[in-house]
């Protein structure tokens, strides 16, 4: 097993599994975020449910592990692949028609998402876990007023909103390559399924990027 995980395909396998897990996570996250557009009580009840649910409590450290594995192996693979070119690099390369821009820039898209993630955790996760969130009562249950926390942040500063939009766009382009690539690495692809995975992946990427991106803009410009 150790030999397998150290092989090139083994490392890619870890990227694929952790990536698919993160794909599920962003889907769930975007679904919950969309409740912000419905109203304070709906969103707060959902956030409270997520914060107190046993299943989510178990999944939280696994999710953190998923991020860590995905990020660490991304750098291990990217750096080792860079040096596989040898001592001299090409003076001229034309890559436009060979592959998608996303597929060649996954590491940079990942770094943008990582920067966003760090700011995002400081904005919300840290405050929710370690205090500083106002409380509210919905249907007689006392809970964090995460709605106010989110909305006040998005209304305070356009630069924060733009960072969130940038993070959403980077995630969209990341998913454009990531989705089908994860299945290809697992071997669950051929000429026919590649078309299905890329189409599904692109639809998913657009929905996710749009949902994450539109919310901060909505609260800054409309609300």
């Amino acid at each position: 097993m150790a030999g397998f995980l150290n092989s090139s395909i083994g490392k890619k396998f870890l990227m694929s599994i952790s990536g698919l897990f993160l794909i599920l996570f962003v889907g769930l996250h975007a679904t919950l975020n969309s409740l912000l557009l419905i109203g304070p009580d709906t969103y707060n009840i959902a956030a409270h449910f997520m914060a107190t649910n046993v299943f989510i409590k178990i999944m939280e450290p696994i999710l953190a592990l998923g991020f860590i594995v995905h990020i660490i192996y991304a750098f291990i693979l990217e750096i080792s692949n860079y040096y596989k070119r040898g001592p001299v690099r090409y003076a001229m390369t034309v890559r436009r028609h060979q592959s998608t821009w996303s597929s060649r820039n996954m590491i940079w898209l990942g770094i943008i998402i990582f920067v966003f993630l760090a700011v995002h955790l400081a904005n919300f996760f840290w405050k929710v876990k370690f205090g500083g969130v106002p409380e509210t009562t919905v249907n007689g249950v006392k809970m964090h007023d995460t709605y106010t926390l989110v909305v006040s942040l998005f209304q305070a500063n356009i630069w924060i909103d733009l960072l969130y939009v940038l993070g959403a766009i980077a995630l969209g382009f990341h998913l454009h390559h990531a989705f089908w690539s994860a299945f290809q690495t697992l071997g669950w692809s051929n000429e026919k399924w590649r078309k299905i995975w890329t189409t599904l992946g692109d639809i998913y990427a657009v929905i996710i990027a749009f949902t994450f991106g539109i919310i901060p803009l909505y609260f800054y410009f409309v609300k």
């Binding site: 090139s8 395909i9 890619k12 060979q98 089908w180 690539s181």
Partner: peptide, 22 residues
């Protein structure tokens, strides 16, 4: 074959698909 491929200093696949084009 994969063990030999890794040992000889070839990189790993990131599914860009450039190879099949060329």
């Amino acid at each position: 074959m994969i063990a030999k491929m890794d040992e000889l200093g070839f990189g790993s696949c990131t599914n860009t698909g450039a190879c099949e084009v060329e």
